[in-house]
Amino acid sequence: MKPHRDRLFFTLLFFASLPLVLLVVLPLAKMLTQPGWTELWESIRDPQVLGALARSMGTSLGAALICILFGTPLAYLLARKSFPGKRAVEGIVDLPIMIPHPVIGIAVLSLAGRHHPLGRALQEIGVQVMGTYTGIVTVLVFVGLPFYVNTVKAGFEAVPTRLEKASRSLGAGMAATFLRVTLPLTWTQIVLGTIMCTARAISEFGAVVIVAYHPMTAPVLIYERFTAYGLRYSQSVCFWLIAVSFLLFVSMRLVSRVRTVET
């Protein structure tokens, strides 16, 4: 292909890509530039806003921590082992991406309510789901899990099994091999998975609003301000939520760049 045809082809690709990029950039740019400095300053000093942001961060990080603890073994199992029903388990992991999120909230409430044996058992030991941090973290784990497990699973799959076999032949058992070879070579994927899971959880609204309107997370607060006071009052909270999400996004990109340079 001649050079000018190459340029023409890439120009066409550029213009075909532009509408999607603008669709994301334009509304966000408008919203970020709309509130004035005074409104932003007042907003960030508002205890309700600060509380909602901190709650969103805290519950999202809590959900990410649970994903690390239980999702890492699951990701390793899916990456390394063949077993009956593996495809079904992979499908189950992906399910939260496809289910409408209010449905997730309703499903969790159905299970945790007093009409279900599990819900009664939980209530007997003092665990409440409706309107509690427990409920929020539960649905955030639900929505964040596929992002964590799939990212970390891809990381495990990228570690050649021969490295693990070499480690075994040198005297290390399975657990030592996992800790000394597999895990260090997958840590960037684990960090990436954690960031993706946290970012997804921070922005979750549909499932959270069903399980816990109060205590209020940032997306629920935005929704409340929008419905009660209108667009302007919700925009400044949106700004700060986007700022937090943006920080996570930047750190995710940095980690993935470090990984690319290393390999």
């Binding site: 021969r162 490295l163 076999k165 070499a166 480690s167 032949s169 040198l170």
Partner: peptide, 16 residues
């Protein structure tokens, strides 16, 4: 494998 005391060297060396 860790109890057999056998050295194993692969084509791609499999260095960590």
């Amino acid at each position: 494998p860790e109890k057999r005391r056998l050295g194993l060297v692969y084509q791609d060396q499999s260095l960590f």
